[in-house]
Amino acid sequence: MEKYFLDAGTTWSKILTVKDGKKAYSIIRTKDLSNYDVEFEISTGHTLSKVKTKKTENEVIALSFGAKEIKNGVILDLGSRDAKWVKFENGKFKDMDWNTNCASSTGATVEMLLKFYEINSDDLIPTNEKYNVTCGIFGLEKIMDDISNGIDSKIAISKFITGIANNAYNFTKKPDKIYLSGGFCENSRFTDALKFYTKVELLGRFVLVDGLYNIYSENLFKGRFDKKIKVTGPDYLHDPSGEELIIEEID
């Protein structure tokens, strides 16, 4: 009996299929996910609305369980839409963050830039010069300025990617080493740029689906906190009606 696990990213979906204890990984475009006619055991990611899945799991939780062998260090997942990291010390959770507000400095922007300027990622010219791309929109403006001033687009985009690497380093609070997960593992221009700042070990694109499988196989799925108390009374603030607060314990 095959079991399926899904990490549905904004652009790419990573699928783990487990049959007789053997794992097989695949990647498909997320827009084609609705054609993938299986029921997943556990899924994570931003794009689950059209997916048949028994359970959904938080992405940072999936990342943590996928990298559970790393007892000390920062694990950064950098994908097409956002960045998230978790830090463990002696196998215990220590810190985390998730940039939830701006997607413009991540993989989707790099893919768009490469398409727009018709450049292959391997043809980028490495440079340790960087743009300040805290905001990707301002970063794009600088690329356009540089190119209009005669800078080679292969260098300009490279400076943008070095800026993203610098952001990733600062975002993770400047660790001595980053364990990198996600699509950027396959972008050598980015991983080389990240090495300007810190040591890097690549974990690949399937950390989150491995985490889902670990959660499944070790029966560690928890879901949301259980609410065991029901409160009736003040469900609005603007009309102090004098209603009494009723607290009931429920099963």
Partner: peptide
């Protein structure tokens, strides 16, 4: 709040 911010809080509470 967007769903990612909620997920971030949820992850912190569960991992912490």
């Amino acid at each position: 709040s967007n769903s990612s911010t909620k997920a971030k809080i949820e992850a912190y509470l569960r991992l912490g």
